[in-house]
């Protein structure tokens, strides 16, 4: 049971982690992230890297959709922009990989601003559909802009290198991706302690009154698109260094749906939600694979069922969370926090 959360300064009151248990949990979590690469096997490290990439991109989408209320089904396309930028720079300029990642984010942000322009005219579902349109147009460009994207055969990258060491092992990539993602998540959390984040939330809750209260919709809607696609671009860049081949089919439309599903399942408009959702949605298909492997002795054609079952479960998770737990996993965490807060005095 916890008592006495009175703060002595505004600074303490406005910190990211305000209670002792929160800080303890965070320290434990950070410690386990540091130990993980030494205890996990290659397969789990592969998954951890994938999770890091997806968390970065989902957090970006959460800023746009969860916090600013602008629904986008184009996150995968923005990732693709980042991935192609990184690939092109590596093949044509040979610039260092951190620079490439940042450039990938910036180019994706620029594209995001253009794609966000309709948000000044249309809202809600109409905007979602405009982003669908934009992502198909981008796909067309990836296929047809031969000189840059190499068409359907795509770009093949050499491993990223860090002070001369090529990063080929998942363990090495883990040490790059996880800190980058952690920084991006921290940035997102910081955003909502300032006027920028407040402006986003105000636009989500009621854009027309936000405007009268001094928030330029033009500026902040486009800014939200820019940040969100910057995150996607960096994530896409990491993706490119992870799989080392980028084709137009690397970032299909369902991948965009995946990110929207991730923030729904995790909890829209909370930083924790973006993280939980991305982790959960990345790991569930793997768990299904274990389930199917386990069934194979009993059901001979179980392996063929894996892909359809994944598709079905993906749909069921979206529908199920929306109907039964619309605030997502983050809300479940909050509930259990409140429960332990009062423990052992149950309500």
């Amino acid at each position: 049971m916890q008592i006495g959360t009175a703060k002595h300064s505004y600074q303490a009151d406005e910190a990211l982690l305000t209670t002792r248990p929160q800080r303890v949990w965070m320290a434990l979590f950070a410690a386990s992230l540091c130990i993980a690469p030494f205890v996990l096997d290659n397969y789990w490290l592969y998954l951890a890297c994938l999770v890091a990439i997806n968390v970065a991109s989902a957090t970006g989408l959460n800023i746009l959709t969860g916090y600013t209320g602008l629904v986008s089904l184009g996150q995968a396309a923005f990732m693709a922009v980042g991935a192609y930028t990184v690939g092109w720079m590596q093949l044509n300029l040979g610039t260092p990989f951190l620079l490439n990642l940042v450039a990938g984010g910036i180019i994706a942000a620029a594209v995001g601003i253009v794609v966000g322009i309709p948000s000044l005219r249309v809202k809600g579902l109409y905007l979602a559909i405009a982003t669908i349109a934009a992502s198909f147009i981008l796909h067309f460009i990836f296929v047809n802009w031969q000189s840059v994207t190499n068409g359907n055969s795509g770009l093949t990258l050499t491993p990223a290198s860090f002070f001369g060491t090529p990063l080929t092992e998942y363990q090495q990539l883990y040490f790059v991706f996880v800190p980058i993602t952690a920084l991006m998540v921290l940035g997102a959390a910081n955003l909502f302690r300032t006027r920028v984040g407040r402006a986003f939330i105000a636009i989500r809750d009621r854009d027309i009154s936000a405007e009268v209260l001094g928030i330029s919709l033009l500026r902040y809607k486009l800014m939200s698109f820019a940040i969100s696609s910057f995150y996607a671009g960096v994530a896409g860049g990491m993706w490119a260094y992870f799989f080392r081949v980028v084709t137009p089919e690397s970032f299909p439309f369902v991948y965009s749906i995946f990110f929207l599903a991730a923030i729904i399942v995790g909890g829209m408009g909370t930083i924790l939600g973006g993280i939980l959702g991305a982790v959960f949605m990345t790991l569930v298909p793997e768990l299904l694979r274990f389930g199917i492997d386990w069934l194979t002795p009993v059901l001979p054609n179980a392996a063929a069922m894996l892909s359809p079952v994944r598709t079905i479960v993906f749909g069921l998770l979206i529908v199920g969370f929306l109907i039964f737990e619309p605030k997502g996993l983050a809300e479940i965490v909050q509930r259990s926090r409140r429960y332990f807060h009062l423990w052992p005095f149950k309500k």
């Binding site: 579902l125 359809p308 993906f314 069921l316 979206i318 529908v319």
Partner: peptide, 22 residues
């Protein structure tokens, strides 16, 4: 919110595709 319902129908689409493939 209309967006939530829209997403439900996206989920439904995914379920239908999976069932047909199955």
């Amino acid at each position: 919110s209309p967006i939530a319902v829209f997403m439900v129908t996206i989920g439904l689409g995914s379920i239908l595709v999976g069932l047909v493939e199955l």
